[in-house]
Design a protein around this nucleic acid. Structure first.
Length: 475
RNA sequence: GGCCCCAUCGUCUAACGGUCAGGACACCACUCUUUCAAGGUGGUAAUACGGGUUCGAUUCCCGUUGGGGUCACCA
């Protein structure tokens, strides 16, 4: 048998946004395909007409594109293949591997209740119906579903990340594979599709482990070869619970909005559950691809640490030339309704670049320098003011006197520093005690570029106005 | 509850029988800058517990505990 190129798929259902867990699963599939020279296929599992929508599909496509995860085939829509799903289900029925079940939802509900809820398993009563009775009911057009007769034997597979995983058929239900409206159930559709698409490696979330024995049983019933299964661990919130809405941002779109760079997001996500070894962390796309291996995936779930993500984003940010950052910052500023006009943002971005973790943070800092209306006193600024007491305002007054006499043409970083230094020395004060209040008055924050550079960027008129306002209002 | 999966610093992780248990984020200190970061240097911090196997267990086996997933005519 020739060694065929691997074929993997990412198969989201368009019932919500692209979750970071889904994005990571897609990333692993993509890395594996690129690494092995295989095909990465995008399949939209839209068989749940109730919850699926085109808008959600578009969000998922956009999210993948943003992350730079391009697919070789697709998107293919599962909904377009119901005919095949139906045929496959009926084939199992005709081969005696499945049977018709006439129990209504109400009857099943009653059975479930009678069995005491949690441990309920369909008892197979319709499987014991005489053939004549089944034929009679069908002739009467009595609604029915098709149930798969679960083999009462061990069902196991060699998982690429977990090793051998084994279930027993006796613990599994005779699952419905075709609804009474003749539409397929998930496990049926997935197996039918994966066989038809010749998928060789199924890389998906841990939450599918319990679906896998059911699917393995179906592969066996169809006489189809098993793909390699690789179940990657979940992503949890900081409290150790499954990552969900209440943990804040869970959609990749949220991170895009926060000004996380796609390359940083990709790098961070890759490391959440995978380690290339040798203490590698910041990696280029090419390095990730060449180092990636399913065997190196983690078995235990990982906690999503947004602080580390921001750190990593900062690393990427500081390596990007300012020119490339300009359009991104302008986009944020526009969203913040900050008027940029024809102003060249280069000096502003240079000033805040190494101090920002996200594009959004960068834009906010630029806005502060551009327009005093964006200055807001933060906690650390407030703390400094409180700590210094009267000395705070005194420093601002001294700064105003000192800076006020600088002629407009001489308003530059060098002159400003020279004057302030001289004044501090003359007054016997530490330079920092003079500069830190200025920083807070001008930016509202204790973090900024060197104060003299800050004042030059902000400009004389606005700087003095801010200092005056802060001195009067005592901040 | 049944079934299944998992278990190294607070977090992400390295180690694939022999290491002072390494790195990163965060935190702390120092350093550089007559100033804020960044950077540099150093520090605090982990093998859940109990049994085995072995000359030797983070590593292999069993149990306990803890956490997670899943149990639909959803996907």
């Amino acid at each position: 048998m020739t060694e065929a190129a691997p074929r993997v798929r990412f198969a989201p259902s368009p019932t919500g946004y692209l979750h970071v867990g889904g994005a990571r699963t897609a990333l692993y599939n993509w890395l594996f395909a690129r690494k092995t020279g295989g095909a990465f296929i995008l399949r939209i599992e839209d068989t749940d007409a109730e919850r699926s929508s085109e808008a959600h599909t578009q969000v998922i496509l956009d999210g993948l594109a943003w992350l730079g995860l391009d697919w070789n085939e697709g998107p293919v829509f599962q909904g377009a293949e119901v005919e095949r799903h139906r045929r496959d289900a009926e084939r199992l029925l005709s081969e005696g591997k499945a049977y018709r079940c006439f129990c209504t939802r109400e009857e099943l509900e009653a059975q479930r209740k009678a069995a005491g809820g949690d441990t309920y398993k369909y008892d197979g009563r319709c499987d014991r119906l005489p053939a004549t009775e089944v034929a009679a009911r069908v002739a009467r057009d009595m609604p029915s579903v098709i149930r798969f007769r679960m083999p009462q034997e061990e069902i196991a597979w060699e998982d690429a990340v977990h090793g051998r995983i084994s279930f027993h058929g006796r613990d599994l239900d005779d699952m419905v594979i075709l609804r009474s409206d003749r539409t397929p159930i998930y496990n049926m559709a997935v197996v039918s599709d994966d066989i038809a698409m010749r998928i060789t490696h199924v890389i998906r979330g841990d939450d599918h482990i319990s679906n896998t024995p059911k699917q393995v049983a179906l592969y066996r019933a169809f006489g189809a070869p098993l793909p390699v299964f690789a179940h990657v661990p979940m992503i949890l919130g900081m409290d150790g619970k499954k990552l969900s809405k209440r943990h804040g941002a869970t959609a990749v779109g949220d991170y895009q909005d926060q000004g996380i760079l796609p390359a940083a997001m990709r790098n961070f996500l890759a490391l959440l559950g995978w380690s290339p070894g040798e203490d590698r962390e910041i990696m280029t796309e090419a390095e990730m691809i060449s180092l990636f291996a399913l065997e190196d995936l983690q078995k235990k779930p990982a906690v999503f640490d947004s602080v580390k993500l921001e750190w990593m984003n900062g690393q990427y940010l500081s390596r990007i030339p300012t020119g490339e950052l300009i359009p991104l910052v302008i986009r944020e500023l526009t969203r913040m309704q900050v008027h940029v006009g024809g102003t060249d943002l280069t000096p502003y971005i240079d000033a805040v670049k190494s101090r920002s973790h996200t594009i959004l943070e960068m834009a906010e800092r630029v806005a502060v320098r551009l327009d005093s209306r964006h200055v807001k006193l933060d906690d650390k600024g407030r703390k400094l003011r409180a700590k210094m007491g009267d000395a705070y305002v005194d420093s601002l007054r001294i700064a105003l006197e000192t800076l006020g006499v600088i002629e407009d043409p001489h308003w530059n970083a060098a002159t400003i520093l020279e004057k302030l230094k001289a004044r501090a020395e003359a007054g016997g004060m530490k330079l920092g005690d003079l500069l830190q209040p200025i920083r807070v008055a001008v930016t509202g924050s204790t973090v900024s570029e060197p104060v003299n550079e800050l004042l030059e960027v902000v400009g004389k008129a606005s700087s003095l106005a801010r200092l005056t306002r802060a001195a009067e209002r005592s901040w």
